[in-house]
Simulated assay, not measured.
Amino acid sequence: MSSSVGRFANKVAIVTGSSSGIGRAVAVLFAENGAKVTITGRSREKLDETFRHILRSGISSENVNQVIGDIGTNDGQTHLIESTIQKFGKIDILVNNAGALITDKNKKIGIFQGIDVFDKNFDLNVRSVMELTQKAIPYLAENKGEIVNVSSIASGPQGHTEHLYYSVCKAAIDQLTRNLALQLISKGIRVNCVNPGTVITGFYSAMGLNDKEVEKFAEDMKANADCIPRGEVGKPEDIAKLIAFLADRDSSSYIIGQTITIDGGSTLVMGMLAGNSALHNE
């Protein structure tokens, strides 16, 4: 498809963490809808796979910019922005998707994790988002652009004690979204956020789960209406469609500073009602 065709025709998008999972699905969907896309991640092999996915959709390689690097570093962020400007000349959309749940090597949980684990979670999930956004703002302002942050239902309002640090970081992203939206709308930049529920991606293997453990986790979630009332685990493409909606000003121009949950109903179930047969019977 030509970059002059589609709802993102002639738009330039940066999608962080696009070497797999949600980020890959977003990059492919944007490219299919006419955007020129910068894909980025730390693994060349995985990023090449995303690149091949895009090409299989009939997209010209000229519409894709691959950037290998670590957005948790100042150099990585600067290179990402400069490379995009060098190749495409502008930035219209920034999707802050990159993130991970970093666990304690000593297998401690909650507040008993080492504070170094908090620092690592914060640096990747919050600090890098703020820094990259700062660097992108001048270019987004030129084109009245869009920012979509990817958070998680772990942000609350329910507690998430086992992975407390990750939960706190994602709550920070929700609040960052609201603050940025208020400050940047005067520049014409819209900022919104999505809170995915259970979506099976490389996220879980990065936590240390093997393929069988991930498969069992997914089956357990699907089988328990108290976990996912919809009865299905989300797909990266489900989240990508919502991100595309928020990044498309024609579709969502009056949505500003919102965090939209997409979780198959998981956050609707209160703990005190979980297991109540009245929930699951007519």
Rank of each mutant, 00 (worst) to 15 (best):
M1F: 08
S2D: 12
S2N: 08
G6S: 07
I14S: 04
S20P: 06
G23H: 02
A27Q: 01
F30I: 01
F30V: 02
E32H: 00
R42K: 10
R44S: 09
D48N: 14
I59Q: 00
N63L: 00
Q66T: 14
I68H: 01
G72R: 03
S83K: 06
S83T: 08
D92P: 00
L94G: 01
L101A: 15
I102S: 00
K108W: 07
I111K: 10
Q113I: 10
G114H: 12
V117C: 05
V117I: 15
F118I: 06
F118N: 03
D119N: 13
D123E: 14
S128P: 07
A136I: 05
Y139V: 07
L140I: 06
V148S: 01
N149K: 07
S151K: 06
I153K: 04
I153T: 10
Q158E: 14
H160R: 10
T161R: 15
T161W: 14
E162P: 05
E162W: 09
H163F: 12
Y165M: 09
Y166D: 09
Y166R: 07
K170A: 08
A171C: 10
D174I: 14
L176R: 07
L182V: 15
K187D: 15
G188H: 03
I189T: 02
I189P: 00
R190A: 06
R190W: 02
N192V: 09
C193V: 11
V194N: 06
V199F: 07
I200V: 15
S205L: 13
A206I: 11
M207S: 09
L209Y: 09
N210S: 11
D211R: 15
A218N: 10
A218I: 11
E219H: 15
D220S: 12
M221H: 13
A223Y: 09
N224Q: 05
A225I: 08
P229G: 06
K235Q: 13
P236E: 04
P236L: 07
I239Q: 02
D248H: 09
R249E: 13
Y254M: 13
Y254C: 11
Y254P: 04
I255T: 14
Q258L: 12
I260E: 11
T261W: 09
S266I: 00
M270D: 12
G271C: 03
M272R: 15
M272L: 12
A278D: 12
